[in-house]
């Protein structure tokens, strides 16, 4: 019988303690962010989709070696290149020039293998996270075009 009453009392006390905690939280400042009106600043290392890095002259750093393409687990990078002859210090050299760099973001798993495998510092992560669309085509990024748009 004493167990009966002590359970009622301790149980009632636990309920009061719980309610006092939620009441305290009621008056605390809010912790959420009103998303479309306020936005989060992405961490420096945030891994978004990739972007090409340009050199001083505005051309992509990429030498079209295709390491990223091979490293990608999902096969979402496809790039093409052509070789051109350029003159460096009086000598003609053959050089590969990037002609297209397509990222199929629909299958990308944002693992970062491509950036890691790149030896020429040619790709980086974008900080973009507001990616939403109802069309698949919107996620086939032409990174070369994006680079030009960024420069213009």
């Amino acid at each position: 019988m004493s167990g009966y009453f002590s359970e009622i009392i301790s149980g009632g006390k636990s309920l009061v303690v719980g309610m006092s905690i939620t009441l305290k939280e009621f008056f605390k400042p809010k912790v959420t962010l009103q998303y479309p009106h306020q936005t989060v600043k992405m961490a420096e290392r945030f891994r978004g989709h990739i972007e090409l890095i340009e050199n001083e002259s505005g051309e992509p750093n990429c030498v079209a070696c295709g390491m990223c393409q091979r490293a990608c687990p999902s096969g979402c990078i496809s790039l093409t290149s052509k070789s051109v002859e350029i003159e460096v210090e009086g000598k003609t050299k053959k050089k590969k020039v990037l002609t297209s760099y397509d990222l199929n973001f629909t299958t990308c798993s944002l693992c970062g293998s491509c950036v890691e495998s790149c030896n020429f510092d040619a790709i980086c992560y974008s900080k973009e996270y507001n990616l939403a669309s109802t069309r698949k085509e919107d996620f086939h990024f032409d990174l070369l075009k994006r680079l030009k748009e960024r420069n213009s």
Binding site: A43, E44, R45, F46, R47, S109, L110, C111, G112, Y125
Partner: peptide, 12 residues
């Protein structure tokens, strides 16, 4: 973890 790894959930 995001500041270190770059992602929030499916870390690699």
């Amino acid at each position: 973890l995001e500041a270190v790894t770059g992602s929030r959930l499916t870390y690699c």
